[in-house]
Design a binder for these strands. Sequence first.
DNA 1: GTCTATATGGCGATAGAC
DNA 2: GTCTATCGCCATATAGAC
Lengths: 199, 199
Amino acid sequence: MDSTTEEKIYEAARKIFVLKGMEGARMQEIADEVGMNKALLHYYFRSKEKLFEAVFKDIFTRFFSRIRGAFTSDLPLKEKLIVFIDNYIDLIAANPYVPQFIINEINRDPKVLKAMIFESGIGPQQLLEIFLNEVQINNQSNLDPRHIVVSLLGMLVFPFAGRPLLQLVYFNDDQKAYDQFLSERKEIVKNMMLKFIEV
Amino acid sequence: MDSTTEEKIYEAARKIFVLKGMEGARMQEIADEVGMNKALLHYYFRSKEKLFEAVFKDIFTRFFSRIRGAFTSDLPLKEKLIVFIDNYIDLIAANPYVPQFIINEINRDPKVLKAMIFESGIGPQQLLEIFLNEVQINNQSNLDPRHIVVSLLGMLVFPFAGRPLLQLVYFNDDQKAYDQFLSERKEIVKNMMLKFIEV
DNA sequence: GTCTATATGGCGATAGAC
DNA sequence: GTCTATCGCCATATAGAC
């Protein structure tokens, strides 16, 4: 690790903020994670608010830009859905707390989200519109494509966001069994979406 | 309103906690909501933690007990699903912040949830198991019923939890348009689940 | 740039008058 | 039971030495 101090602070902040949220996170905790002094955080990023915004914008952008790939190919909709589901579950599995983190923070304070969307040229709005248009164009039924997208995302995100509850009541709090359950979900969701898309 | 002071405090706490979560809520804010002094909260409920636990347990129990009705009838699975989807969307629509509140708090501190589940005789575990058994028994495909339940709940909860983002990017932040979208979801989800259940 | 020390404010909680 | 006043703590933020 020969990254700069600023980068190390940023990485630590990212980790803590995702786990605890803006209000739950402590500047001291982030400093401890870096192994350096609390005052340094303010030296590089004026305030907790600024540090958080930097982290949130970055996470949000990265998370949604990873999705675009699946929907800029020339494959038919079915194939695109398959690729998307595979990619998205892998992405969430590698960052299991990110979706809930995003949902929380946009509910807590939608200002940052709105600023992001309307500032950035290549913001998530475009990414989501790509998805939307693809579904619209290839959709054989006359179903509002937004319902397809919302159903799909709900099926993918919920098992991660609701994990503590679901694992406890359905799997006797058995972590390995729940991981197994998650690994089966790709095929389940593919199956479900394809049945749904068919006329 | 001739309810007791304790009840008024409880109702105010319920409102604030659901909106802001345990960490985001302020005792002063709850006191303001009641229109009385902060010290009274401590008189009736020793601490913020105790007040929160009382509220959380009550919300959790009420929210899941309302679900049971749909699955204790003699209807076939299809009919049960239809009743459940209608009831559950109405329930969330009347309490749009509750699902995310529950998800947040069980992630922040699963201890309270675990204590609840294993203490109460008529806890949510039984309620969920009823659901699970019904699906299991009536399930014509050999699909793990837990996948059905998770998919169903994800499709129902996500449009509410992700509302700020979805409304902004898909509906130009038009509140009425999004309400319309939500009102269409009952039929969409019914359709999708029935297609999925069929062999 | 990085540290120690401290300022500043807010919040949960309690003491005590009425 | 309900209030005012205040304690004690913790968190963000800053000042200033090195």
